[in-house]
Amino acid sequence: MTGLEKILKHIEEDADTAADKIITEANNKAAVILADARAEGEKKRAEILERSKLEVQSCLSRAESAANLQEKKLILNAKQEIIGNIINRAKESLLQLEDTKYFDIIIRMVGKHALAQNGQILFSEADSQRLPIQFNETLKTVLSQKEGAVLTAGKETVNICGGFILSYGDVEINCSFDALFAAAKENLQDKVSDFLFD
């Protein structure tokens, strides 16, 4: 082997060693980069998984809240319907009382609402036809306890469903059952609700 061949062989061996070293270093760097990439990928996957879990929990929580709210609305609507039905039945039971009891209630209401002046008491057509014979006398007795209060039963009728209207010229006091129940609606609802649901 000549000197040139030895030098070339030596250069070739050095080149092979350097190439092996470079390849090994490149493989090591590639392994580190790959490991880092895998670690970063795993970290991202874990973050995405955690975000997804939180979003699912948040979504479930919102759905549960909405369902609870809907349930409360349905229960409230059902309670209001029950209360409304009971109040309507109470009003209907007043209208269906026999004449003596019905007009006893009317007389008590007149005593409470009559003003100390002259006026008329107006009834529905149905109530006008079923006025007890002694109604005017009972009315005078009740009004005698209020100085200046004088009421006569009006000949005209009004379009109401039970109760009466007191007419004092331009002033009318609506004591129909519908008006009285409407005015006391909130209080009645509270009382019926307390009785039924508490």
Rank of each mutant, 00 (worst) to 15 (best):
D178R: 08
L131A: 01
D198F: 08
D170A: 15
A35W: 06
A37P: 00
L131W: 00
P132R: 07
E172W: 02
D99A: 15
R108C: 02
K9S: 08
L34A: 13
L131H: 04
V171D: 05
I75L: 09
L49A: 14
E12Y: 09
F135C: 04
A35T: 13
D14V: 15
K140E: 08
I121A: 08
Y168Q: 09
S193M: 05
R51F: 13
I165A: 03
D14W: 06
Q80S: 10
T152H: 03
N174K: 07
K43I: 05
E71T: 06
Y168V: 02
L34V: 12
Y102G: 03
I160R: 15
L122S: 02
A184V: 11
K44G: 00
S193L: 04
S176V: 00
S61E: 05
I82K: 12
D198Q: 15
L8V: 15
S58K: 04
I83C: 03
F123E: 04
K6Y: 10
Q80G: 05
N68F: 09
D14G: 12
K72I: 13
V192D: 01
V56R: 10
I82T: 14
T157S: 01
I82C: 08
A126C: 01
E50C: 01
D170P: 08
I133T: 06
I11C: 09
H113Y: 11
F123D: 04
L131I: 02
T141D: 02
A39T: 13
